[in-house]
């Protein structure tokens, strides 16, 4: 046997994790970090350029929008919306998906048949269309957006985790646990769930990125959060009209979305690599 070699933490995990953390901090501490209230209007400074462009000033480092609202503050408060939706929706989708995945993968048979068919039918609707349909029915609001994402995306968790559960289910230690009289519930919690946990965490962080995008799309078409709550999608929609002479108003929120999604994905990918036992296990001769 060879000695374990010292391994540096995965770069994706490190970079993705720190950016994601930054976005999270912005979201949580928005009122303390943001220089202005996001809805405060300063009509003297309409469409002010950012500080590095001609005519920019330190008063509004990233400029203002067509109503004279501070872009930096709106970005920071937008992060709050994005993070809330991402966290709550991803958790909800995970809970729902993981629950059915464990049922289907563990019990198999007709339980699996019903759950798998349901997932397939669910997946045959384009996700964006499905969430818009849901919002039309539910009305707008942060909670509605969260609910819509949960109802659309739980299938993603269910499908991937189900096969993970099936793999663990096939292991002999699960059969052994049954032979010594563990109940099904106990087997799932003690023997199966720990094996699917790494995949679950990974999916969760990837789902966060997806939720951010979905929230932005819904806000962009004014089907997401109410208009008095700042959101990145909304900022993009607002900046569209003036995009030729104030391109920064459009570019900055897009950049924020891009950065956030990228960081969640890097983080998730890094996690997957770090937690994958096949990656860590070194075969000897």
């Amino acid at each position: 046997m060879m000695g374990k070699m010292y391994r540096l933490p995965d770069p994706g995990l490190l970079i993705g994790g720190s950016v994601a953390l930054l976005v999270l901090v912005c979201g949580i501490f928005a009122p303390w970090i943001a220089p202005y209230h996001p809805n405060d209007q300063e009509l003297l400074f309409i469409l002010a350029p950012p500080v590095w462009a001609d005519g920019g000033s330190m008063a509004h480092p990233l400029g203002t929008d067509s109503l004279g609202r501070d872009t930096l503050s709106r970005l920071i408060y937008g992060a709050r919306t994005a993070v809330t939706v991402a966290a709550a929706a991803s958790f909800g989708a995970m809970l729902l998906g993981a629950f059915f995945a464990h049922l289907a993968g563990y019990f198999g048979g007709w339980v699996d048949w019903i759950i798998s068919r349901t997932v397939e039918i669910w997946l045959s609707f384009p996700p964006v269309v499905l969430s818009m349909l849901l919002i039309t029915g539910l009305g707008i609001g942060i909670d509605k957006v969260i609910l819509a994402i949960v109802l659309v995306d739980w299938t993603r968790f269910c499908r991937v985790l189900r096969s993970e559960v099936q793999v663990a289910r096939g292991q002999d230690y699960v059969a052994f646990a049954r032979l010594i009289g563990f109940s099904h519930f106990r087997v799932i919690i003690r023997e199966i769930f720990p094996a699917t946990l790494p995949m679950l965490i990974t999916l969760l962080s990837l789902q966060m990125g997806i939720s951010v995008v979905v929230e932005a799309i819904l806000s962009f078409v004014a089907m997401g959060v109410p208009s008095d709550v700042p959101a990145w999608g909304q900022m993009i929609a607002d900046a569209r009209i003036d995009m030729y002479y104030a391109p920064w108003g459009l570019a900055l929120p897009i950049f924020a979305i891009f950065l956030t999604v990228l960081s969640f994905n890097l983080f998730g990918d890094g996690l997957r690599r770090t937690l994958d036992p096949r990656h860590t296990a070194q075969r000897s001769a």
Binding site: D172, E191, A195
Partner: peptide, 13 residues
């Protein structure tokens, strides 16, 4: 029962 493959029979965690 003693299972054939100890790799699969012992929960690695």
């Amino acid at each position: 029962l003693v299972f054939q493959d100890p790799q699969s029979a012992l929960n690695p965690r």
